[in-house]
């Protein structure tokens, strides 16, 4: 075991994968010589050569489009989009192409690619460096969507994503890169070295896609969440005094329905939390699933805490961000309902 930040864990996942399989190639904007603006690919070009880790032109459609062609050839590209906010030029390639190629060619061609991108806010990135676009991917048939919440899972999930036979959207909460973040932006940053999930095996291991995990056991209410908000929800549980069970979904699609229903049937209450905007967000799907599967067990309406339906603001970042106070209020309201 080693102590790793989320950046180091993600880098280690690519390193391990490239070492095991020469079909794995890594590219994107600034990822080659420099090692990525967040340093996730640092040293990979030096170790594996310029044809396996290289800089790409600033053209997201081109990055994903070439990755799809490479996958059709038989490689396993793991590409980086510098910020999730920049992925939209590649959306056609992801939605109409990567997600559909297996289906439309009846398996003659497949698309085992990973599209990594930093997601979410909390770094004063304004509206073009803070978005959480996961619902734009979970709505698309043929894609898998993953959001890790800690270094251990980030590494295991990324290796699983690279080895997966289908395209995977891998959203990395950038506020978690260097330490767990519980939403208390005014407090000192704690590093991953002090967090148990900063302990990461150095070699190969996987966290299977499609499996959620109970991050904080509890009996009063289930919180369904992922990414940065896992830590916010844990803080909210502690601060509100509500014994919440925090479920870290880890993979949004395919989702772990058994873990969701087992917890909600036990606690009989549910709060869904995400950083992304509220309306038509992934949380709407979770609420639907809970009411379809657990309606007769519920003691209270299922609540949602999410980003407001505004563009992600700059100066008002902490008014916008659904921090522990808002989550705690929802927990208390759900208990009182």
């Amino acid at each position: 075991m080693a102590r790793m930040t989320m950046i180091e864990a993600i880098r280690s996942a690519m390193d391990v994968s490239m070492g095991r399989d020469e079909k794995v190639v890594v590219f994107g904007e600034d990822v080659g010589y420099f090692g990525g603006v967040f340093r996730c690919t640092q040293g990979l070009q030096q170790k594996y050569g310029v044809t396996r880790c290289f800089d790409a032109p600033i053209n997201e459609a081109g990055i994903v489009g070439t990755a799809i062609g490479m996958a059709a050839y038989g490689l396993r590209p793991c590409v980086e989009i510098q910020f999730a906010d920049y992925v939209y030029p590649a959306y056609d390639q992801i939605v109409s192409e990567a997600a559909r190629i297996r289906y439309r060619s009846n398996g003659q061609f497949t698309c085992p690619i990973v599209v990594r991108m930093p997601t979410g806010g909390g770094i004063f990135g304004g509206q073009t460096h803070s978005q959480s676009p996961e619902a734009l991917f979970t709505h698309v048939s043929g894609l898998k969507t993953v959001v890790p919440s800690n270094p251990h899972d980030a590494k295991g999930l990324l290796i699983a994503a690279i080895e997966d036979p289908d395209p995977v959207i891998f959203l990395e909460p950038k506020r978690l890169y260097n330490g767990p973040f519980d939403g208390h932006h005014d407090r000192p940053v704690t590093p991953w070295s002090k967090h148990p999930l900063g302990e990461v095996p150095e070699g190969h291991f996987t966290v299977p896609l499609g499996e959620a995990v109970v991050r904080r056991p509890g009996s009063a209410v289930t919180v369904l969440t992922y990414g940065t908000m896992v830590h916010v929800a844990e803080a909210a549980a502690g601060e509100s005094g509500v014994d919440a069970e925090v479920i870290d979904l880890r993979t949004l699609l395919p989702y772990d329905l058994e873990a969701i229903t087992a917890s909600v049937r036990k606690t009989r209450r549910c709060v869904v939390v995400h950083e992304a905007t509220l309306t038509s967000g992934y949380g709407a799907e979770l609420v639907s699933l809970v009411q379809e599967e657990c309606f007769w067990h519920l003691e209270a309406p299922v609540a949602r805490v999410a980003g407001y339906d505004t563009p992600y603001p700059h100066a008002q970042e902490w008014d916008y961000f659904p921090g522990p106070k808002r989550v705690a209020e929802a927990l208390i309201a759900t208990m009182e309902a």
């Binding site: 489009g65 070439t66 799809i68 062609g69 490479m70 390639q93």
Partner: peptide, 25 residues
């Protein structure tokens, strides 16, 4: 013969990717 898409032009950049993969390999 790669699977045809009804979305125009997407295949043009994929062809380049396939060719790059062949060169990488």
């Amino acid at each position: 013969f790669f699977s045809i898409s009804g979305n125009l032009a997407t295949q043009f950049i994929q062809a380049v990717g396939w060719a790059m993969a062949s060169a990488i390999s």
